[in-house]
Structure formats: structure tokens, C-alpha cells
């Protein structure tokens, strides 16, 4: 069982990588999901300009592979005089990507709430905003939660791409170890287990949240 000894020896090196991966994912979701909700709201706006802006951002974010987006931002921003760390660049690229997909899930959730709910909110005296916040949004979020959780997992796994622009996340740490030890299969097996465990743990938490959000449906 010599590989176990190796794994135990490597874990302290992978640890900081896991922290960076989680941090990157967390920030991409923290900015990406609200951004997606904003894009969804803009897509339903009465103003054509807002609808068009939303359409463009969403189509670019969904149309380009995250890796291409990452490279484009990483190499174009400095030319435009914007100097950002690779971590910040990765956060922007992944937030954009996540926000573009999330906006579609939010839109699906919002349009699945029956029209009568909006009318009941208005006739209950709520302003449009209060009605949206307290009546429409909670129902839409319940509908959007499962696909958004799936998206969160994809964003976490996509965070491995940030390796190409030198963000010191889990994947880059694994690469570092393997290029020193030449034990590629062993290192990446361990890496796979770490990614898998975190994903599985996260999905288990989401399951709990879903139950909580659906308790009114009995």
C-alpha cells in the first residue's frame, strides 16, 4: 500500500490548491448567480436596449468555451491597459460563464410561476418590487435550485481550467507534484478523488436544501 503513503505525503501540498479552487468557485458563484438573475430580469425588461445588452452578454458567455473566454480575457485585458491578477481574471471569466447559464435557469424559474401569483400580489397591495421579492422570486428559486446546483458543480469542475493561466488551484498543484515525482496516474487518481468527494458532499447539501424549499408541497 505504498501509494497510500504517497497520498498522505502529497495531501499537505494539495490542500492549499483545494482552498484556492473552492475560493475561485465561491467567488464565481457569488458574482455569477446574482449577475445571472440580473441578466434574467433585464431579458424581461420593457426597454429594448436592456434586452439587447442581456442577450449579447448571455450569448457570448454561453457561446464560448470557458477555456477560450479565460484566454481571451487573460491576453486581451492587459492590451487594453487593465492589469489584473490571474485569480481575478479567472473569477471574471467563470462568473461570466456561470452568469450566462444561470440567467437561463432563472428565466425558466420565473416564467414557471403562474400568472395568477403576480395578480394576487398586486391585489394584495404589494408594489411590483415587493411582490417580486416576496411572492414570485421564492417560488422561482425553488424551481431553479436543482439546475443551479448542477451548474455550481460544473463551475467547480470548470475552475480546474484556471490552471492554464497560472492560478495555483488544485489542478496546478497536482501537476506540480506529478512533474516532480513522475507518478502521474497516482497523483491524478488522488486529485480525482478530491474533486469527486467535494462534489458529492456539495450535492448532498443541496438535496437537504431542496427538501427544505419544498416542504410546503408536502
Amino acid at each position: 500500500m505504498s501509494f497510500l503513503n504517497d497520498w498522505i505525503a502529497w495531501l499537505p501540498q494539495l490542500g492549499p490548491g483545494v482552498a484556492i479552487s473552492l475560493q475561485l468557485t465561491g467567488m464565481a458563484l457569488f458574482f455569477g448567480f446574482p449577475f445571472g438573475l440580473l441578466l434574467a430580469a433585464m431579458a424581461e425588461s420593457r426597454l429594448a436596449t436592456l434586452r439587447w445588452i442581456s442577450f449579447l452578454i448571455v450569448e457570448v458567455g454561453r457561446g464560448l468555451p470557458a477555456l477560450v473566454l479565460l484566454y481571451l480575457l487573460y491576453f486581451s485585458l492587459p492590451d487594453m491597459g487593465v492589469i489584473l491578477t490571474s485569480m481575478t481574471t479567472a473569477v471574471i471569466a467563470l462568473s461570466w460563464n456561470a452568469g450566462a447559464y444561470a440567467s437561463e435557469y432563472f428565466r425558466a424559474g420565473l416564467s414557471a410561476v403562474p400568472r395568477g401569483q403576480k395578480e394576487a400580489a398586486l391585489t394584495s397591495g404589494f408594489s411590483r418590487w415587493t411582490g417580486f421579492r416576496l411572492v414570485i422570486l421564492p417560488q422561482a428559486l425553488r424551481i431553479s435550485t436543482p439546475p443551479l446546483a448542477g451548474l455550481a458543480v460544473l463551475v467547480f469542475q470548470g475552475s480546474a481550467l484556471a490552471f492554464v493561466i497560472a492560478v495555483p488551484e488544485l489542478m496546478s498543484k497536482a501537476y506540480e507534484i506529478s512533474s516532480m515525482t513522475f507518478r502521474y496516474l497516482s497523483v491524478f487518481s488522488l486529485t480525482a478523488i478530491v474533486y469527486g468527494l467535494i462534489t458529492w458532499l456539495f450535492l448532498a447539501l443541496v438535496k437537504l436544501l431542496e427538501v427544505r424549499l419544498s416542504r410546503h408541497l408536502v
Binding site: 403562474p114 395568477g116 401569483q117 395578480e119 394576487a120 400580489a121 421564492p138 417560488q139 410546503h216
Partner: peptide
């Protein structure tokens, strides 16, 4: 309303 329209999450 004909279809009640209670807020189902409350």
C-alpha cells in the same frame, strides 16, 4: 380569484 391564487410557499 377563480383559481384562489394563495401564495403556495407561505
Amino acid at each position: 380569484f377563480q383559481s384562489f391564487n394563495l401564495f403556495p410557499h407561505l
